[in-house]
Simulated assay, not measured.
Amino acid sequence: MNIVRRLHEAGLTSEQAYAAAFGSIGLSLVSWLASMKAEQAGVERADRWGIFVGEWAPTFFGLGLALAGYEKESPASAKGSRSAWLDDPAQKAG
């Protein structure tokens, strides 16, 4: 959980991780198409590029789930920033 906390403190949100996952799916298709047209290596090479980039999506989805769980537990994420909890006197008192 230490890595997830550090990523959250660095400003990465679960929505950004999910967007990266969907982006990598699109990038996988683009890299496959580009490899098919630009390289003479054939379908096998294009398939490898598509699969390589496509494997990023599950990683980003998993990271998004981990960050979403952390955001639910973290009182700062309710307001969208780490410092919001520190600035709210009602939160400090409770």
Score class of each variant (00 low, 15 high):
1 M>C: 10
1 M>D: 11
2 N>G: 11
3 I>Y: 14
4 V>M: 09
6 R>L: 10
6 R>S: 08
8 H>T: 09
9 E>V: 00
9 E>H: 01
10 A>L: 14
11 G>F: 13
13 T>I: 13
13 T>R: 14
15 E>I: 14
16 Q>A: 15
19 A>G: 00
20 A>R: 01
20 A>P: 00
22 F>R: 02
22 F>S: 01
22 F>T: 03
23 G>N: 03
23 G>S: 00
24 S>L: 07
26 G>D: 10
27 L>M: 15
27 L>V: 14
28 S>H: 07
29 L>D: 06
31 S>H: 04
31 S>Y: 04
33 L>A: 08
34 A>D: 06
34 A>G: 09
38 A>I: 06
38 A>F: 08
39 E>N: 05
41 A>P: 01
43 V>P: 07
43 V>W: 11
44 E>L: 05
44 E>H: 05
44 E>Q: 05
44 E>P: 02
46 A>M: 01
46 A>P: 03
48 R>H: 10
48 R>E: 12
49 W>F: 09
50 G>Y: 00
51 I>N: 08
52 F>T: 02
52 F>W: 02
54 G>H: 06
55 E>T: 12
55 E>W: 09
56 W>E: 15
58 P>S: 03
59 T>K: 11
59 T>A: 11
59 T>D: 11
62 G>P: 00
64 G>K: 02
66 A>D: 15
67 L>P: 10
68 A>P: 06
68 A>Y: 07
69 G>D: 12
70 Y>S: 06
70 Y>F: 10
71 E>I: 05
73 E>T: 08
73 E>M: 11
73 E>R: 11
75 P>A: 04
77 S>H: 01
79 K>D: 03
79 K>H: 06
80 G>K: 01
81 S>M: 01
81 S>R: 02
82 R>G: 04
82 R>H: 07
83 S>H: 10
83 S>Q: 13
85 W>I: 12
87 D>L: 12
88 D>N: 13
90 A>P: 01
91 Q>F: 06
92 K>F: 02
92 K>L: 03
93 A>T: 10
